[in-house]
Design a protein around this nucleic acid. Structure first.
Lengths: 191, 191
DNA sequence: CAAAGATTTCTATCAGCGCTAGATCATGGT
DNA sequence: ACCATGATCTAGCGCTGATAGAAATCTTTG
C-alpha cells in the first residue's frame, strides 16, 4: 500500500509546514499575529485544515514549544561537554540558558508563557521536556552538595527562568544580566 | 461646587467597583472569563462605560495588579519586622512571597503574567511597585555580602518568581516547594 | 474505463471578543 | 422653563477560535 505511505508523508510534511509557518510568523510579528486565518493563508490551505492536524491553536503553540525544548537541550549539551561539572560548567550552562531565551524569545514564550497544552510532571511528559531537564540535572547535579540533586536543579532552573521572564517583561533592566548571573552562580554553588 | 465633588466621588466609587468586580470575577472563574461584556453586566452598566475609566482591558488588569503589589508589600513588611535581617528574616520573606502567590494566584497573574500596561524600570513606575521592591531590598540587602544589594535582591526575587511561575504552570510539583525554598535560602545567603 | 465509495478540503457560519461612533437621555446653569 | 453640557446607551465594526455540512478529489471496485 504505497499510496497510504505517500499520504502519510504528505500529511507529515504539512504538519511540519504548519509548525514552521506558526513559528516564522510569531518570530516576525509576535504570537498575537498568529491566528488561525493568517496561518491558513501562509500555508495556502483553508482554515479548518489546521484542525485536522491540531486540536486547536494551543497545540500548535505546543508543537513550536517542543521544538524549543529540543533546541534548548542541544544548546546546553553543546555548551557543557557531557560529564563536565564544577563552577565553570555551571556558569556556561547559565549563560547558555539565558542566551537561548534572548536569541529565541518567541519560542521561549511558547515553551513557558503561552498555553501550549503540554503535559508536565506527569508520566505523559514528552521526551524533549524530560531531556531538557535531564541536561540541566547532568551539570547541576555535580554541584548540588548536600542538597538533593533534583531539587537543586529545580531551584537553579527556576532562578534562571525568573531572570529571563522578569527581564523580558521589562521588570529587570537587561544590561545587568551578566552581573546577576555571576551572583547567582557564585552563591548557589557549594564551595 | 458640591455637585462636582459628588460626581467625582461617584466616579471614584465606580472606578473601584470595576476593579473589584474584575478581581472577584477573575478569582472565581479565571481571567479568561473577565471580558468587557461580563464585567459590564456585573457592575450593571453598559460596556462602553468601562472605557470612560480605563483605556482598555489591560488597564483594568493593571489596576488589580497595583492592588496586588500593595498587598504583597504589606505581607512582606508584616512578616519581616523592619530592620530585621539575617537567615531567619530571609527565610520568612521567601515563605511569605511564595505564600502570597499561592493565596492570590489570580492577582499574581495580573502582576506578572498578564498584560497590565504597567510601566517598569522607568521614572513613571507606580509607587506600589517601587515599594514592593524596596521591601525586598530592605531585608535582602542585609545578606547581600560582597554582591551589590540591588543586584542581589533582583536575583533572589527572580528565583522566587521563577519558583512560583513554574509551580503554578504545573512544571514543578507543589509538594516540594518548602524543600526548594530551603535550598534557595541556605545557598544564597552569605555565610 | 467508468461508476461507486471513501476521504479530504472547502465555503459558510456561529458565538464571542475588544473597542468605538453616534444617538439618547439626564442633569445643572441661566 | 429652556438650553447646553456631559454622561450613558444602543448598535455595530472587524476580528477571534472553532464547527457543520456541502463540494471536490482521489481510491477502489465492477
Amino acid at each position: 500500500m504505497s499510496t497510504q505511505d505517500r499520504k502519510e508523508r504528505g500529511r507529515a510534511e504539512r504538519h511540519q509546514l504548519i509548525v514552521s509557518a506558526a513559528r516564522t510568523l510569531a518570530e516576525a510579528e509576535g504570537w498575537d499575529a498568529v491566528t488561525t486565518r493568517r496561518l491558513a493563508e501562509r500555508i495556502e490551505y483553508s482554515q479548518p485544515v489546521l484542525y485536522s492536524h491540531f486540536r486547536g491553536m494551543d497545540e500548535i503553540v505546543g508543537a513550536v514549544a517542543l521544538e524549543g525544548f529540543a533546541e534548548l537541550t542541544a544548546a546546553l549539551r553543546c555548551a557543557v561537554p557531557s560529564g563536565g561539572g564544577g563552577h565553570a560548567a555551571v556558569a556556561a550552562l547559565a549563560e547558555t540558558y539565558v542566551a537561548f531565551a534572548e536569541r529565541s524569545p518567541t519560542v521561549y514564550d511558547a515553551m513557558f508563557s503561552l498555553r501550549s497544552g503540554l503535559p508536565f510532571a506527569d508520566e505523559t511528559t514528552p521526551p524533549p521536556l524530560r531531556e531538557a531537564f535531564a541536561s540541566l540535572l547532568e551539570t547541576l547535579g555535580t554541584v548540588a552538595g548536600a542538597a538533593d540533586p533534583e531539587v537543586f536543579t529545580e531551584v537553579v532552573w527556576a532562578a534562571l527562568h525568573g531572570l529571563v521572564t522578569l527581564t523580558r517583561a521589562g521588570r529587570l533592566p537587561p544590561q545587568h544580566t551578566p552581573e546577576r548571573l555571576a551572583v547567582l552562580v557564585d552563591r548557589l554553588i557549594a564551595r
